[in-house]
Design a binder for these strands. Sequence first.
DNA 1: CTTTTTTACTTAAACGTTTTAGATTCCAAA
DNA 2: TTTGGAATCTAAAACGTTTAAGTAAAAAAG
Lengths: 335, 335
Amino acid sequence: MKKVTVKEIAKMAGVSVTAVSFVLNDKPGVSEETRKKVQKIIDETGFKPNLNSKKLVLNKSFNICLIINSFSSPFEDLFYFEITRGILNRSQKYNYNITISKPTGSKDELPDMVYSGDTDGIIFMQDISRKLTDKAIASGVPFVVVDSHAAISGITSINADYRMATHAATKFLLDNGHRDIAMIASETVPEFHTQTLAGFTEAMKEYGLTPNPDYYGISASGEDTAYEAAKKLLSSKKRPTAVLCTVDSFAIGAMRCAKDLGLSIPHDVSFMGIDDILLSRYIEPKLTTVGIDKVEMGVLAMDTLLQKIKGKKTDSVLLPMELVIRDSVRNLLHK
Amino acid sequence: MKKVTVKEIAKMAGVSVTAVSFVLNDKPGVSEETRKKVQKIIDETGFKPNLNSKKLVLNKSFNICLIINSFSSPFEDLFYFEITRGILNRSQKYNYNITISKPTGSKDELPDMVYSGDTDGIIFMQDISRKLTDKAIASGVPFVVVDSHAAISGITSINADYRMATHAATKFLLDNGHRDIAMIASETVPEFHTQTLAGFTEAMKEYGLTPNPDYYGISASGEDTAYEAAKKLLSSKKRPTAVLCTVDSFAIGAMRCAKDLGLSIPHDVSFMGIDDILLSRYIEPKLTTVGIDKVEMGVLAMDTLLQKIKGKKTDSVLLPMELVIRDSVRNLLHK
DNA sequence: CTTTTTTACTTAAACGTTTTAGATTCCAAA
DNA sequence: TTTGGAATCTAAAACGTTTAAGTAAAAAAG
């Protein structure tokens, strides 16, 4: 494939390279007549300016680096994949490329592309270490953080309001007559844990209840550990009537356990999750949960990053979410 | 952030830029002594060479363009996401970036980056139009195709062997005593349809059977159309004992229909799928299917593309797959 | 002790754009 | 006719690398 350059286009059109550059970038300083003439040749040859030289001279990469800490369970991946779809959707609209990367070295180094002028902005996805954000600040490259529960002050982040979500979920259980509510939470990310715990206890308090300490110290980190946590919870003498799980994947593991113990859901015990992952509407019974618009999270992340790149001040956003009522919660009031 | 260049490094070290470039790229032509001296300054300053200028002079982008025709159902997306994980995994190992893109214009134009020197290779994912491959050939950029059933001669493609998969699935049903087997297939991609149909009829023939024409003309394009197809199939007077679905998502839709009709799975009717998507092990009953290693598909796609970029000849590969026996097929022999 | 070869190093061109600063043309106003 | 100022156009520098070609010094060969 013969490579055409601006110089050759210029020669063909009988003008200078500057003129060609002007028509390429829709800049003034060239008559309508020559603009047409040059454009015609560009169209005929199918000429596309070399991006690498453009990037070099403009000191711009048209590239966004999406840093994913680590791929883990397929569940989480799916969650992040939906966010990614939002990001991609938006980036294509604004003619930015997305390069998917991850921390290098001992997990707290930014990828080289950040330092080598190949990145106009960074999106951190998932919880990330403070070291990483510090380095991002030092690099001077604009960045936003999406779905990292550790809301570090001074850093623009896009997060779902898990506190409100837990509150809404708890309230829904209470409104359905549940009083003995257990919570399977995650302690791996302290900030996330305190948020969800707060939402839970607040809702309980509003109904004049104090959470049963036997019920909410339960910690899990994935579907399988949630299974184990549920085992302890459900085989105790006085078992809760409902189990609130901090994320859907926990609920899926916990429900599997309940079934294995011969319990009927929601008749014997109710379950709620948070996130509304794709799976939740396919398991049986379908999971009642609090849904978060993941694609929207991605869209917002990209939009605010673009603002940041333009040098504008940006605020963090806490995305609202909505209750998704399906079949895993029993109404204890209307028997 | 102060930007350091080779020139400055050279000045600090008291050598020429060439010398610096040599140590950066581990090239001979510089004494061990000065190499150490320069390296020390590079380390101290944390200097990273500007990638854009490097790309320009080397006429190389270290960038792979992953073209996804269109995002469609969450199912399919998940399937392709797994392939993408394989691709990412491999690309990071070889220091290539992956840019996710899609056809532009009327869906049969390659993205600009292909023409503007910003792509060292292309991976096409999903079925793609002939126009697109023709343009890719014309562009001179190396490319491979992954999971496109239309195996165009002369184009290196990475595909799962759906014919063999259908054959294996059919054989499994036959071995479990099923004789009245229906097939819900997809006719949207003719090549895919002929492959799966061939695998099906071959297996039937091996058992001295000819497929019941009432049973296999059924076409679907997604979970919902599969539901409709199943409705026709299962409410007919003489309904099949087993339904073979060309992809798992069809099976999921069809099973939903069976349940709605009050049929018990697998007692009243058995189901099989192909692909083994994540969902298949979470629905009830768990779907018996033929599994395909999607991550491996991605890995292979990236590996062969890298070969192609190096100028080597590459062969297409047909990936084998294996039976995943779960709970959706009844054994009619041992009652 | 000269000649050749090797080694270590440097100068400068090249990659393909954008853009600054300057040159030329054109035309209206003086 | 001159003058001045848009309007149009161009030459050349700049972006930060790599590398071909060349030089100088040191080592090997004669």
